[in-house]
Amino acid sequence: MQERGSVLWKRVEVVGDIAIVGVPFNADEEELRRFAEEMMRRTGVRAVWGKKRDTSGDFRLPTYVHLAGERRSETLYREHSCVYFLDITKVFFSSKLSYEHRRIAKMVRRGEVVVNMFAGFGPFSILSFKLGQPKVVYSIDINPYAYYYMIVNIELNKTYGVIPMYGDAFRRLKELGVVDRIISPLPERGKEVYCEAMEHLRSGGYLHLFVEIKVERGEDPLERALREYPAEGGRVVRSVNPSTYHVVLDIRKGESVSPYKSVC
């Protein structure tokens, strides 16, 4: 149990006063519940939830299992001087994106028109507006819960230049016309987004594209992504499994359309 417990501690994310434990494929439910009770004693969190390594439904959310403490999944989460209200079971959350929230937000420039195609509860949109001072950030999501929490979080952070938009991101993007910067944090639809987004970026504008990359043994996922997409640079965000990675690419649209047309 001690050895297994040390592995479980590496799978813990703390979101406000709630802890999330990544559930191993061969997990023993009783062992998980004992671990959750121990975590509550050590950390002072009010609830512990287990997150399975699956995704389902239109909103691509994992399955959650209540393990200990309050049967509550809403919490306040603080990150980079912002505060967010969210329900971990109803909107996508990953602490692994914290660095990217700040890195991309710091690249946004004053006066830009920015679009976040899959905004969730709003962390990319809200921090980008606070740090970059763009003219506006259009913040889109088709998940009604994400849309609700996004509205709440805009009010909590007083970032009224973030405009929440409910609906399909591709349709909404077409309605907005040509913009300066697009953020797309949904790796599973990376190529589809790339082909659409490049049509709506002005020359010199940027696309921050999250993509899912499959690699052979020993192959570098970032190098593979840069061979597939004409990007200025990028980072490996996380591994999904030993052969699949999520990578973020910073892509600048040049005057020539040939580089992105060759991908699409």
Rank of each mutant, 00 (worst) to 15 (best):
G120Y: 07
V215G: 11
M150V: 06
G233Q: 07
Y145P: 06
L76V: 06
P134F: 08
N143I: 07
S94H: 12
K130G: 01
E175W: 05
E38F: 08
R217S: 14
Q133L: 12
F92G: 03
V263M: 11
L176P: 09
E112A: 02
V263T: 07
L8P: 08
G234A: 12
P62I: 08
R235P: 08
A119H: 09
L97F: 14
R41D: 07
G44S: 04
K135W: 09
N157T: 10
L222R: 00
D17W: 03
H101M: 10
V162D: 09
Y229A: 06
K253S: 04
V257M: 11
F92N: 05
V48R: 00
E228H: 08
F85C: 07
V113K: 12
M39S: 04
L32D: 01
P123T: 01
A19I: 08
P221A: 01
Y138N: 01
E100M: 12
G177H: 03
Y149A: 11
Y245D: 07
G204S: 10
I20M: 13
N241S: 15
S81F: 09
D141K: 06
P144Y: 08
E216L: 14
H200Q: 07
E29I: 12
R41H: 07
G177V: 02
P221V: 02
E70N: 08
M198T: 07
D250A: 13
M198I: 13
S81G: 06
V114D: 01
G204K: 09
S56V: 10
R53P: 00
D141C: 07
K52I: 00
H66Q: 11
K10C: 05
R235L: 14
N157G: 09
K253A: 03
V178I: 14
G50I: 01
S184H: 14
P259L: 10
V7Q: 12
S98H: 14
I154R: 06
E223W: 00
M1Q: 15
R60V: 11
D141Q: 06
I126H: 03
R34D: 12
H208C: 06
Y194K: 00
T55W: 04
E228T: 09
R181S: 01
S6E: 15
V108G: 04
N116V: 14
E3M: 09
E192R: 15
A197F: 07
V179G: 01
R252V: 13
F210E: 05
E188Y: 03
K90E: 15
S81D: 13
K106C: 01
F25V: 11
A47F: 02
L127M: 01
T63C: 13
P187H: 05
V215T: 15
R227D: 13
F210S: 06
E100A: 12
V113C: 05
R217I: 13
V113Y: 10
V14N: 02
R71W: 12
G233D: 15
P187G: 05
Y260D: 05
Y166I: 11
Y64L: 14
E228Q: 14
I126E: 02
S94G: 13
H246E: 14
T55F: 06
